[in-house]
Nucleic acid binder design. Sequence first.
DNA 1: TCCGGAATAGGAATGGTTACTGATCAGAGT
DNA 2: ACTCTGATCAGTAACCATTCCTATTCCGGA
Lengths: 143, 143
Amino acid sequence: MAGTLEQDIREQFRRSGYTLTSQRRAVLEALEEANGHPSAEDIYLIVKKKNPRVALGTVYQALSVLEEIGVVDSKHWSESPTRYDLNVQPHLDIRCARCGEVSEIPSVELGELEKRIRSNTPYEVTRTTIVVEGLCPSCRAVG
Amino acid sequence: MAGTLEQDIREQFRRSGYTLTSQRRAVLEALEEANGHPSAEDIYLIVKKKNPRVALGTVYQALSVLEEIGVVDSKHWSESPTRYDLNVQPHLDIRCARCGEVSEIPSVELGELEKRIRSNTPYEVTRTTIVVEGLCPSCRAVG
DNA sequence: TCCGGAATAGGAATGGTTACTGATCAGAGT
DNA sequence: ACTCTGATCAGTAACCATTCCTATTCCGGA
């Protein structure tokens, strides 16, 4: 199972010219292990458990390479660090303004929007990110 | 003209319990003067021209109050400071990844999207921000 | 095996934003 | 107008996510 993923990713690395080092592999594994939407720091802490010598900077660099070759996606909410995600398909994520938990919003079609944006601006659109904030059910219950 | 605006804003302040101080008024005037999407620093520099004693922290605090009472809106693109806007209606802004210029994208209907989001998440949605990046016409010509 | 460029560890630096503190201000009530 | 009290402010230090820097290590190809 992970083998299939590995094949694809190896291929992406080969095509891009970047090398698939042990640190970069470890970052990918950490992204799988931290099911959810970890920050660079979260990933760093997970990677550190197996390799205590990794540097936080290396995690950032690895993430930026992984994002560049299209293997991971990132989203940034203000007031909290950037979150990373193995799901690179366009999709919506919502972050709880109280506890910080991020989760996915399913079933919202976005293709239309991107198209409408492109036809209403003279800019060459390179990226559209939708950042949703709210209160998760349990925080809503509290208060 | 500015008078009418003033009335509305005075009203918003009265209702909220915050006081309309000279610094907060100056921040509003700076937002008008900096036609576009200034950062806190941009606003600070404009305000400073008339009142050299203002502190940057005061500008941040004023902006957060103005945003809270619904008089200004803010958007955050990663890799650049938060931009502020007197246009508080939901709308799209695009930022040039090369020169940083921000401009508005007109004629894209968003009401539908917000509705679809609300009906697909158990969260109580408080904010939906769409952040678009691209290359502006002149930067596109250069590169 | 050896070489050269890419990647890494470790730590310092950066930049936007917030926090802190004593001084100042606004405006409700006299 | 005067006073009082809490809100606001100036100035500055602190914070934190992220990037930058440099010497060392690693990796893949000749």
